[in-house]
Design a protein around this nucleic acid. Structure first.
Lengths: 217, 217
DNA sequence: AGATGATTGAAACAACTGTTTGGAACGGAC
DNA sequence: GTCCGTTCCAAACAGTTGTTTCAATCATCT
């Protein structure tokens, strides 16, 4: 019963978990409408009726898959700085923490699914934003307010967008970038190089002293 | 047969054009899999068989819709600078040209469809990149090479990514940004303010003199 | 006029969609 | 043993999908 199809993991946990894992991958690859419950069930080695029994319907399975992807991903933001760390150092670590995770995430399908859901927010986006995105956003906003005390109104928010946009770009627009410049040109830039560049770019823009590990380009 | 090009809804041009217009809107709103040919045909006021007669099948209709969206959009990049314009001024105009078009595009559904296709490139992405995206990318790459003569290897490309990522952010991530900060906070920032900010941010990062219309803050 | 080719119409096609059904298999509790 | 609740399976459900058929209509030309 189990040995016929490609399985998610070596062991075979609960059918519910296999469904969630398969749903995460298939939804991430094909989107909500593009994925079929039969495709997911086949990949999970579970009967079609399983999705209705364990989750009710396709939509609830999708929501649970997104929630799992988000919780699986949220271990990323658990960086804790020593007390008294300067805001500039925190900002640098913020960038250096996010960029590699975007390039080579611990769970590619989890990040893929989250990004897909956030690009066109549905019913599952709310909890992801509440528990994962918004805290991170306000955290960075505080950093920027500390770095730009004289900034008012929308300036800190736009500055935050300028920072995070550069960090997200390489993930959100890698496919089209590969179409433009070719896969090899894109593969030539590794995460640390990107992080170095963004840190330098942002720090120059904010009039902060560039951290040491930068040589003169 | 007067001017047929102006509008889609009031007058009724060729059934083929009505199909293309409807397909552009529906595909933009619901994606390729989410849109149904019946939905498109109903919106266009055309019989179901029309899509097969005029385009063969759904996929070719989609491809033609993307091509039309791209050509409709490509009038944007037709900015020509006077000879001898400094590269810095060109870069500033590049940013100031793109940002408002991303906020309030001439044809929202056309841009929406293009961005959707480029986020997950399919068979229609090739021509869009070849005829629209790549020329713009290489154009900006030349600007940056002129501004950073001593930059080598991937540095100009990454710098270009830093610029374009900020310009695209407000379009690509507006839904999630609204979820984070609320719609009103996002509506409070208008295109020219964003363009001002990005120009200032980029020019600071590139060690260029900030253009005049920026007041200190 | 009649003939010809392009275009449209209503209906049906097979395949697939998400969902449900009724029963079989399982494992403990009594 | 019986009973019960949980889990799973094969089959079928009604509805939608993209696509096709074939006759009706239209415009155009001789």
């Amino acid at each position: 019963m189990v040995d016929e199809q490609t399985l998610i993991h070596d062991a075979e946990p609960d059918a519910r978990h296999r469904l969630l894992a398969a749903a995460q991958e298939v939804f991430a690859d094909f989107g909500y409408e593009g994925a079929s419950v039969r495709q997911i069930c086949t990949r999970a080695g579970v009967n079609i009726a399983g999705v209705n029994y364990h989750f009710g319907d396709k939509e609830h399975l999708y929501i649970e898959a997104v929630k799992q992807a988000h919780s699986c991903m949220s271990q990323m933001e658990s960086v804790v700085y020593p007390v008294g760390t300067p805001a500039a150092v925190k900002l640098e670590w913020f960038i250096r923490g996010i960029v590699p995770e975007m390039h080579a995430p611990a769970s590619p399908s989890a990040l893929k699914l989250m990004m897909r859901e956030l690009a066109h927010p549905g019913k599952a986006a709310g909890v992801v934003v509440d528990e994962f995105i918004r805290p991170m956003a306000f955290h960075m906003l505080e950093l920027i307010r500390e770095l730009l005390p004289e900034a008012t109104q929308q300036k800190p928010m736009m500055t935050g967008f300028s920072v995070i946009s550069q960090c997200l770009y390489y993930r959100q627009n890698r496919p089209v970038s590969e179409l433009i410049f070719g896969k090899d040109r894109l593969d030539a830039i590794d995460p640390t190089m990107v992080a170095d560049h963004i840190v330098e770019f942002v720090f120059r823009a904010l009039n902060l002293p560039i951290p040491s590990h930068q040589e003169a380009r």
